[in-house]
């Protein structure tokens, strides 16, 4: 995953996620949450069902844990959180969650909902964290077509909160409408094979030799409430190891 973000005004976000503002937003979000209780319950119920399915395949559970083949048992820790402020109408959307550095949330951690991925932690204060939403035109995520394993880049086009775009897939790959899009393997933020969405429209650009796929997102950002922050326990180890690689550009 690539986050190309050089915002220097991080200080402003300190204010945004600071106690007073965060608490007021939290209070209102708690009122607001009642309006989405039914949808939220259905989501959590279907997630429970999915987890029961995983449990029932007992023999496999040691090898295939929740986050797919690439992750070891215990590699990812889950921190449950609730959204206290969200937006969908801008080109660069962020949301705020009610868990912060005290709860173990750090920058660049993955945030997922029960249906699909939701964003990447941008900045934390002690009790809150701001998250770069998937609906942010600056956020690029490595993603792949589940059926063919071809990897591309997921980037929002700023148009519709229900859809995002998967680009950089070569023209010769045969892709069908309805193919599932999942997170790619070259990311230390998201576990491999986490659901993102479903291909809903395919456009091929004759000039560029690349396909541009419209992806219907599994996560409904308009009434998103319960999310999980994923903490990669081996991230530091991986980074330390990778630092020892010889630098190619000199």
């Amino acid at each position: 995953m690539v986050v190309r973000y050089n915002i220097k005004q991080k200080a402003v976000f300190d204010v945004v996620s600071s106690s007073v503002v965060g608490n007021i937003n939290e209070w209102f979000a708690s009122v607001n949450a009642y309006f989405h209780l039914k949808e939220e319950n259905n989501l959590l119920q279907s997630e429970n069902a999915g987890l029961r399915d995983v449990l029932s395949m007992k023999s496999d559970i040691c090898k295939h844990n929740l986050y797919g083949l690439s992750a070891r048992i215990g590699q990812f820790e889950t921190i449950p959180a609730h959204i206290v402020r969200n937006s969908t109408q801008w080109q660069h959307n962020f949301f705020t969650i009610d868990k912060g550095s005290i709860d173990g949330v750090r920058e660049n951690m993955a945030v997922v909902s029960s249906t699909g991925i939701a964003g990447v932690v941008f900045h934390t204060s002690s009790h809150f964290a701001t998250v770069i939403s998937l609906l942010n035109t600056k956020l690029q995520i490595s993603a792949a077509i589940k059926r063919t394993h071809f990897a591309g880049t997921m980037v929002w086009d700023g148009a519709d909160a229900r859809y995002s775009m998967l680009v950089n897939i070569p023209n010769h790959i045969i892709i069908e409408k309805g193919d599932t899009v999942v997170t790619g393997g070259f990311s230390s933020v998201f576990p491999k094979n986490m659901a993102i969405g479903r291909v809903s429209f395919i456009t091929s650009d004759e000039n560029s030799n690349f396909l541009s796929l419209q992806v219907e997102l599994f996560t409904d950002f308009s009434c998103l409430d319960a999310v999980y922050v994923l903490k990669n326990n081996y991230l530091q180890e991986q980074k330390t190891l990778e630092k020892q690689l010889p630098k190619e550009d000199g």
Binding site: I7, Q9, V12, F13, V15, V16, V21, I24, N25, R85, S87, W90, F94, F95, T96, T130
Partner: peptide, 9 residues
Amino acid sequence: VDIFSGTYG
């Protein structure tokens, strides 16, 4: 309004 909307300025 910015502070409460999480928009920066």
